[in-house]
Design a protein around this nucleic acid. Structure first.
Lengths: 220, 220
DNA sequence: CCTACCGATCGGTAGG
DNA sequence: CCTACCGATCGGTAGG
């Protein structure tokens, strides 16, 4: 019969994941050693291997738990049944809040995915695509004309560029800071959508595909 | 008297840098071995160390040559003496073209700067700040009201987010593809600027600093 | 003495 | 859960 897990097992796991995310974000996954992770967590290396079977599992948990929170945001906002623009504004705000609370995890997700074992990497990239599809669908509902022009996916990715890139330059600071950026991003995006539609179809006239699938992939 | 260098020396250096940039972009700097770089270039490892004194120098050259081209773009556009909006539009277009021609180098610059020796890293980050300052100055000239509200630097960084993030999702394809994205980014940015000014000062009213220096750093 | 390399191996350290 | 290790591979350099 399997023995019960110690009550602090899950808590210890989460603490280790947080410390590992910090180290991976600072030094990169490949150049962080399991010795460093163990030392930072105040546990022996064999103890570390008690909580996670190998270095890849550490990386996979960091990425997947962060991604699970982002997916939950999408599902919660969709459940409210808002119109497209307020729904997208709320998602932007919730994403920025989530990133602010998990800056290390976010950096690991964006920079270290390439080090994941291929099955884990596939699952993580599919999770990212789920989130992008949700945003893109809301943009398409709001502006069917842009959808018809094949511009929704590229524009959605530009929106992700703004918010994903924020945490490479934002000084880690007070929460109000991050909160203030969300409406600015949203205003820039919605204000800019009106200007895009006039010139873009001209620029793309030589392209044959309407859905833009040959122009951009939503994965890497 | 120093002997002349073999005529192919510089050509060989550039070929090695291009191959190293590809490997670093694909696998990350830390997990690419000098053996792999040498093998990919078809030279022995001692020969590789003949062209570059160590692994860090390889990384430093990749980053600094790419950055030098971006700085050259800034200086060339500034020399034209255009009005702010056409100047920024042209810079966006030239940046996108430059990124399209140097996708590996661009990815190395954005993801592997943390592995540079500290003196090299300092110089590279100063080069990045030069480019950001040039863009931000043009935005400020165009919209002094946004400058007074302390929003120019954050907005400039959102613009960089759009174009820097493009090459994490864009499928490597035909040149026309990248060229078509530049005016879309510019339209989204300029179209959005008008919408930002109305609501942002409200969102930031509790902040005390006018220049936004406590809110965002333009380095990492 | 120099350069432009080669085959072989150095001292240390990685993940496990 | 510890000390003590392993197979392998790391960045860099020896002699010729």
């Amino acid at each position: 019969m399997a023995r019960r897990r110690a009550p602090g097992f899950e808590i210890q796991r989460e603490q280790i994941l947080a410390e590992a995310a910090l180290l991976f974000a600072q030094r990169g996954y490949a150049s962080t050693s399991m010795n460093e992770v163990a030392e930072r967590c105040g546990v022996s290396k064999p103890a570390l291997y008690h909580y996670f079977k190998d270095k890849n599992e550490l990386l996979a948990f960091i990425c997947e738990e962060h991604l699970a929170r982002l997916k939950a945001v999408v599902l919660e906002v969709e459940a409210l049944g808002l119109d497209p623009e307020p729904a997208i504004r709320l998602m932007i705000r919730r994403f920025v809040e989530e990133y602010a609370d998990a800056q290390n995890e976010h950096r690991v997700l964006t920079e270290d995915v390439k080090f994941l074992a291929s099955e884990d990497r596939t699952r993580v990239l599919e999770g990212e695509r789920f989130i992008v599809r949700a945003l893109a669908a809301a943009v398409a509902r709001m502006r069917p004309d842009l959808d018809a022009a094949g511009l929704v996916k590229p524009l959605t990715m530009l929106l992700f560029g703004m918010i994903n890139w924020m945490f490479t330059w934002f000084k880690s600071g007070r929460r109000v800071t991050h909160a203030a950026m969300a409406p600015i991003v949203a205003d820039l995006f919605f204000g800019g959508l009106g200007a895009v539609v006039e010139t873009a179809p001209l620029a793309l006239e030589s392209e044959g595909d309407k859905d833009g699938s040959s122009r951009c992939g939503l994965d890497r």
